[in-house]
Amino acid sequence: MSIFVNNKTRLLVQGITGREGGFHAEQCLTYGTNVVAGVTPGKGGHIVAGKIPVFESVHQAVNETGANVSLIFVPAPFAQDAMLEAVDAGIELIICIAEGVPILDSAKTLNFISKQGARLLGPNCPGIISPAERCKVGIMPGYIHLPGTVGVVSRSGTLSYEAVSQLTALDIGQSTCVGIGGDPLIGTDFVDVLKLFNQDPETELIVLIGEIGGNMEQDAARYIKEYVTKPVAAFIAGATAPTGKRMGHAGAIITGSDGTAAEKKSALETAGVVIIPSPGEIGITVKNMID
């Protein structure tokens, strides 16, 4: 088992005829993901990667192929339209890769999505991968992953790749790796993912990778303390970041005292989470916890 996606996932790629969309649709397909359709308005009838049919609209794609998950590659200014189209067509899980979606677009989209009972991952996220299910829905490099029992959840893409490679190098596999995204408003947060990892029989240990800005890590700490029965290790990036400056990610900015790395680490530590002291020690810390 895995969380969010599995070998039954029927993936639709929105923006599939663009440079990034086409490249990554093919990468997902090569990894083993069941990519059933693509959508680009104006390009209906095309075929991508020799076998993926392209449709004019998400409604058409869903009707023809039974797609239930959508991976969105359209540029940020058009992401709101793409996300709302996917929700309207009944897609259950929407994954938005684009960085730079206007924050009010995200706010309006999230409002609509929660009313419809769908789930959004992102925006500004690398997506999700489950190695044992051979299901990759995102832009992460597939080859660094190994099937196993560690669940990884992260606000940062490259830092989660770093964590996964350290785990794989020590022969520690992953159940599912979820990138929730670096924006201030996102559809799925740490608590949503922790809840599923806690219930997932395949997941035995959880690695949480947070960063400065907001108080999502503190919410996670409260949830872990109360409900999570599995061991959790956490790394928080940005201890050296100054107040009031945006560190790349729109969400990575310290505004109040809650946003600092020190506050987040102390909240997690209080909840019994093992704090990983340095980004080079993610793998070894988990190994020590297992041994």
């Binding site: 940062s156 989660s160 990778i209 990036a237 050296t240 990610h249 990575a252």
Partner: peptide, 8 residues
């Protein structure tokens, strides 16, 4: 490359 890795 990457904001999280840069902070780390």
């Amino acid at each position: 490359n990457g904001a999280g890795l840069a902070m780390a």
